[in-house]
Amino acid sequence: MDELIQDLKCFDAVVDALFGTGLDREVDGIFKQVIEAVNLYSKYTISVDIPSGINSDTGIKMGCAVLANETVTFGTAKLGLLINDGREYSGTVYIDNISIPKACIDEEGLKIITNYGEFPKSLLKKDIMT
């Protein structure tokens, strides 16, 4: 663990990809130690898909979680990035299109809407916005 801490102090950024969207238990043991070290010593942290330790469905911190400056997620926003602890731990969230067919998203019944782009501004009548 001492070597990891020394390395973290030297790195300009850390990419967190320890756990993904399937995490369904408390983080413990060496994984908890690594997450705690990243949170203490990382200058800048980018999480892949969701910060390790955050439940992607509920946004609840599973014991401990990476505190990311940015999170790059794929396909669609995960609810856990937007609610509960996930909102704080995700930092700025970017959604990257990885060519998931719209039919697959529709088949899963995903209905998450965020305020990215023109939503909810697009719902307002033009004369209200002036």
Rank of each mutant, 00 (worst) to 15 (best):
D49A: 04
I50E: 07
K126S: 14
K9I: 06
D57C: 04
L110S: 11
I100P: 01
A103T: 14
G80I: 02
D96G: 08
L8Q: 14
I30L: 11
A68K: 05
A68T: 01
V93P: 03
A65D: 08
M129R: 09
G75C: 05
K32S: 06
T58L: 08
G59L: 07
Q33E: 15
G117Y: 06
S90V: 12
L8K: 10
D127L: 03
N55M: 01
C104A: 15
D57A: 10
N55I: 00
L81Y: 14
I112F: 04
C104W: 08
C64A: 11
A65R: 11
I128P: 01
L4M: 12
F119P: 00
K126N: 10
P101K: 07
N39M: 05
T130E: 09
T45G: 01
F119Q: 02
A65V: 10
K61A: 14
I83Q: 11
S99R: 13
G20F: 12
D2C: 06
V48F: 07
Y94G: 09
Q33R: 08
D85K: 12
G29Q: 03
S90M: 13
V14H: 12
E107T: 07
V72R: 13
E36R: 06
E108V: 09
F74L: 15
G80P: 03
F74Q: 10
T73V: 04
V15C: 11
I46E: 02
D16P: 03
K111M: 11
S56Y: 01
G86I: 11
